[in-house]
Nucleic acid binder design. Structure first.
Lengths: 158, 158
DNA sequence: TTTATTCTTGACTATTTTGCTCGGGTATTG
DNA sequence: CAATACCCGAGCAAAATAGTCAAGAATAAA
């Protein structure tokens, strides 16, 4: 599996969403601020997440994004495969034609690895992590920080 | 962990080495042919493998590379970390300063994942795989293929 | 001792991915 | 209608990936 910052960003954003889920839709601008991810990049990631049915966009003022399912029904594996379209460890995609139409020496190794990796990530749902006290602590810190920033740099009046 | 073709190539080459270990040093040219990896690229990979003490180079005619240790003392994890210097899933390298000097939301997730991944790959030694009948079968096929190619395109006489 | 063989090294290059910007849309609410 | 926020596509710089190319050094065999 491909484990890049891209997947990390997506999971981070989805956790942010899960944490603030009950407070209504969360705007990408907010996520961008609290998680330190560029807004335009978030837009790209969320386009993919939406296509996979993981989030729903709510347009208009007061809009934003919300989870399309309960947090306990969204796995980390889903999030990563949604944004990292190339999820294979293997070049043959498991077909076994890695070398001139035959299996290469390491075919089975990567197959096993791939499976283990997926099983691990598929066993972790968003809520599992969000409920951890350490995570809640970090989220609280981020909220404080965010409020402080709004005080220092308030939105321009309408 | 970073799982790229680079690491795959390295493990493949090391398996080839392990399979033909008792027949004396194996040249990079041979590995290049049987495994379909560019010779110059192999040179780069083996430079790193040598620095990590996984292989030994034998110069001169009849030379090549051989494993520096017994195949049951070389793990897949070692091979991959040898060529993929950047082995971290996390941007903070486990230090926990992922976001403005603090932990990011997904810090623990990647930490756990990283650990699991490493444990899995560290539990697999070269000999474990080389001994499997399916692998031996593939190796035999490759040897046949190689002989055939030498017959069709023999080395120019001296 | 010459020569062929093979490792060894370094610099250079093409392609892909990553992370991001910009400029426009479109739907929705007040 | 105007502000908010999603939506969409093109493009782009930097880094990583996956190589190539050229020259040199050690050694075994002729």
């Amino acid at each position: 599996m491909k484990l890049s910052t891209k997947g990390r960003y997506a999971v981070t954003a989805m956790m942010d969403l899960a944490i603030h889920d009950r407070e209504g839709p969360v705007t990408l601008a907010e996520i961008s601020q609290t998680q330190g991810i560029s807004l335009s990049y978030l837009e790209q990631l969320f386009a993919k997440l939406r296509k996979r049915g993981l989030v729903e966009g709510v347009r208009g003022p007061g809009g934003g994004y919300r989870l399309a399912r309960m947090p306990n029904r969204i796995t980390v594996a889903e999030i990563i495969t949604a944004v990292d379209e190339n999820v294979d460890v293997m070049r043959c995609h498991g077909d076994g034609n890695c070398q001139d139409g035959e299996r290469c020496l390491t075919h089975e190794l990567w197959q096993e690895l791939s499976q283990r990796l997926y099983e691990f990530l598929d066993g972790i749902t968003l809520d599992q992590f969000v409920e951890r006290p350490e995570i809640r602590e970090i989220a609280r810190r981020q909220d404080e920080e965010s409020k402080r920033m709004n005080f220092v740099f308030p939105r321009p009046a309408a």
